[in-house]
Amino acid sequence: MNVTDVFSDNELMLRVRDGDNVRLGMLFERHHKKLFNFFLHTAGKRQVAEDLVQEVFVRMLKYKHTYRGESGFGPWMYRMARNVRSDQFRKRGNAPFDSANVETVELADERPAPAELLETDQSIGLLRTALAQLPIEKRELLIMARFELLKQDEIASLLDCSVATVKVRIHRAIKELSRIYHQITCEVRA
């Protein structure tokens, strides 16, 4: 038995809904880093990503009465996260983070690239750039699937489609990412 099984996310959120707001602290501890990385890859800037994580938890409290727990805590939280991100972009009049502002990806280890970059570092950098050029729907799908933020059936619930459709969409997203990655790699090496 795993420690995380002691109290499931669903149980904790049901308690929050019933007035035990302190339990939100445990949900924050479990999910804030994943949410931060989700936003970092789909919203671009560290500060913006942190603001959005905070806003998700503010909304969890505000809309806790809407939580039913039927499709699980994960899809509910990420549905809220996507709404928060959309609202943020709308409020600021910005387009969703995409290839147009790929240079704004701001990562903690960002530093002037040394001439003798290790090949793996370079590959990771190129992959990040390729990922940032992917349309936001595909990018978030890949992030959710690859970083295991949600299981396949939870992604299906979030996107309101079947698991088979999720697999097809992820396959297409990997294909496109792979194509962009190769293109960038060729440009860099040319």
């Binding site: 602290g25 931060f36 970092l40 409290l61 903690a108 992959l127 990922l131 792979s178 190769h182």
Partner: peptide, 29 residues
């Protein structure tokens, strides 16, 4: 090709948020 990309995605390092995020959350709570 797809396997290479898929494996590469898993190698993307997970970033850590600043400690300020935690402080802001608990203050809000």
């Amino acid at each position: 090709d797809l396997q290479h990309t898929w494996t590469g995605l898993a190698d993307l390092p997970q970033e850590e948020p600043s400690s300020e995020l935690k402080a802001r959350f608990y203050s809000m709570l």
